[in-house]
Design a protein around this nucleic acid. Structure first.
Length: 571
RNA sequence: GCCCUUGUAGUUCAAUGGAUAGAACGAAGCUCUUCUAAGGCUUUGAUGUAGGUUCGAUUCCUACCAAGGGCACCA
């Protein structure tokens, strides 16, 4: 439809001997101003020295002369020179019908057809707790992955994890000091959270206790060398249970990774790249091997790739990782990494180094950065007073949902499942409703919202629509376009825009456009629901309203999927 | 000091250079003999400061102010 309108405007302008390279059309915020609108008269008025309103009138006359499209009902000039297009009843009924036909595929497009994209996100470290930042990266990465898939790309999901390094030594130190934490009786989740506690213990003393610091550094060397049997045993067990515990979280969050990359494996690969490009890219400085990026770009700075101790840094591992990714999927033509924006500057340096070594990667790497979780009052603890982790937040939120569900009748299994899906939705939505660059201010008192502008609100709207549909089925009212009400409802004027919203999210890597759109249609549908009896055997328009409800539920479900949120049929 | 982000109702967020700057939370008041009241309907309130570009600026540019992050052997 967009293209048809653009062409129509273009032809009308040609008839007036005006040529415009790019015509911008948009949806007016206020639906009273039509369904599409263009500011073309305003934009060109100066060039042709005419009053924009008069010019707009002339253009509209031309448009009306040319227009044979039954989808466009009315074209008019408004404000100080906008040209507004009102679409016809027929257009909206057809768009509803189309949504019903597409069902689960609604909103799909082909703008990324033929693209193979690997998205790396989440990246929690074994032996360390899965914290809120990981939750944030996961929510964003998963949503972006799904949006890209909806645009026709083949997406693989990658997880990059620090399986070696000081943090592991800290955790193992804690485990050695407090052997209770090595208890292998419980589930892998309780074992993993004990290891998290051990890490916290080790990390604390490392800062304040000189002897402990020495001991931890010693453990670290032993881990690298795999020279101590007891440490090896603890390591292997700890690695296994923490990774298993992560899998449970991924399952709950709705992520399934295709590839796992480990830092210990990337380190030698990266080192090889660095050593192979000495003089060309890297140079020695104070005993370390560095890349002086500021020589090539004043906005970049020098970074150490191999320390004076001879150890590869993160930067070096990142080089190895990138190369390994392209090796893992040789067909890949875009590699995306999602991290917090504190990593932006040195990722730029790494990218610069890599572009010198592998110029062919240049256009195929993308770093998406998001803001950080910040806390009102600086408190970093959960309601029970413990250090907040991703897991504790998920559990606290789920407990709140269960409390809200207390008067609903569900089997225990159903209840648990729904509470989990709703809890995840509350958290994910609070992350995805805003553009990804900014920090998220997290307030534990208000915590996660279940009302208004929230994930559960969207799910609730979906569940209600679903129960309308159940009733319709019982009463044998099928979606139908035989009788169409003359009034065009607001919800129809919104639903057809979904594919455009998906495309925009995809092009800009911004899930929040979808989140905002879903809120809009949910509000519109809830209002419709509140003011109309949808299923009513005695009303001829009922079938059309059922069709509308179906199309709303399809769009909502697809949209929630793109945010990585499940849509329970009941809640 | 330099570089990168970000400054919008009391609070948390929206707004491809356009029309009366939208929501939500909070506060006040209505609303379930209709399909889920986690809902609906009213009322209330904002573009950090100073310039510039433009027919038009929350949006682009400059300076300032404020917050966060980064700037050599941690990731």
């Amino acid at each position: 439809m967009q293209q048809e309108i653009k062409n129509l405007i273009k032809d009308a302008l040609l008839n007036l001997n005006i040529e415009v390279s790019d015509i911008v059309i948009e949806h007016p915020e206020d639906l009273k101003n039509g369904d599409y609108s263009t500011n073309v008269a305003l934009a060109i008025a100066k060039g042709v020295e005419r009053n924009p309103k008069e010019l707009a009138e002339k253009i509209v006359i031309e448009i009306n002369r040319l227009n044979v499209d039954k989808n466009i009902e009315k074209v008019e000039v408004a404000g100080f020179g906008f040209i507004n297009f009102h679409l016809s009843r027929e257009f909206f009924s057809k768009s509803i019908e189309e949504i019903l036909n597409k069902a689960g595929d609604v909103g799909k497009n082909e703008i990324l057809a033929g693209r193979r994209i690997m998205v790396e996100y989440t990246d929690p470290n074994p032996f360390k707790p899965f914290h809120i930042g990981h939750l944030m990266t996961n929510a964003i990465g998963e949503s972006i992955s799904r949006i890209l898939e909806h645009s026709g790309a083949i997406v693989s999901r990658a997880n990059y994890q620090g399986d070696i390094g000081l943090h592991v030594a800290k955790a193992i130190y804690g485990l050695l000091k407090d052997e209770k934490l090595q208890n292998k009786a419980g589930t892998h989740n309780t074992q993993a959270s004990n290891i998290g506690l051990a890490y916290v213990l080790g990390a604390e003393v490392y800062e304040i206790d000189e002897n402990a610091k020495k001991e931890i550094d010693e453990i670290n060397k032993k881990i690298y060398a795999r020279s101590d049997e007891k440490i090896n045993e603890i390591y292997d067990w700890g690695f296994k249970v923490t990774m298993e515990a992560f899998e449970d979280l991924y399952e709950m969050l709705g992520t399934k990774f295709n590839f796992y990359f480990l830092e210990s494996v990337m380190a030698p690969l990266g080192e090889e790249i660095v050593r192979g490009n000495m003089g060309k890219v890297f140079e020695e400085s104070d005993g370390a091997i560095v890349f002086k990026a500021e020589k090539l770009d004043s906005k970049l700075h020098t970074r150490v790739f191999i320390t004076s101790q001879g150890l590869p840094t993160y930067e070096t591992k990142e080089l190895g990782l990138t190369k390994e990714k392209f090796k893992t999927d040789p067909e890949m033509n875009l590699s995306i990494v999602v991290t917090a924006n504190e990593q932006m500057d040195y990722m730029r340096v790494v990218a610069k180094a890599l572009s010198l070594i592998h110029p062919e990667y240049g256009e195929m790497m993308k770093h998406i950065t998001h803001g950080m979780m910040r806390f009102v009052g600086g408190k970093m603890s959960s309601r029970k007073g413990n250090v907040i982790t991703g897991e504790s937040l998920l559990n606290d939120t789920k407990a709140d949902v269960l409390e809200k569900m207390i008067d609903r009748e569900f089997s225990n299994e159903e209840r648990e499942k729904i509470a989990s899906d709703v809890g995840v939705s509350a958290i994910k939505y609070s992350i995805l409703k805003q553009s990804i660059g900014g920090d998220i201010i997290y307030d534990f008192e208000k915590s996660i919202s279940f009302e208004g502008d929230s994930g559960p609100y969207l799910q609730y709207s979906y569940a209600r629509a679903n129960s309308v549909l159940e009733k319709a089925q019982k009463e044998n009212i099928l979606p139908d376009f035989e009788v169409v009400p003359s009034d065009i409802s607001e919800i129809e004027k919104l639903l057809y825009q979904f594919p455009e919203v998906v495309s925009r999210s995809s092009v800009e890597y911004e899930p929040h456009y979808i989140a905002n759109f879903l809120i809009e249609i949910a509000r519109s549908y809830n209002s419709f629901y509140g003011n109309t009896v949808i299923v009513n055997k005695d009303d001829k328009n009922s079938s059309y309203r059922v069709a509308l409800t179906y199309s709303f539920s399809f769009v909502m479900k697809a949209g929630l999927h793109l945010l990585g949120i499940k849509a329970p049929k009941k809640m």
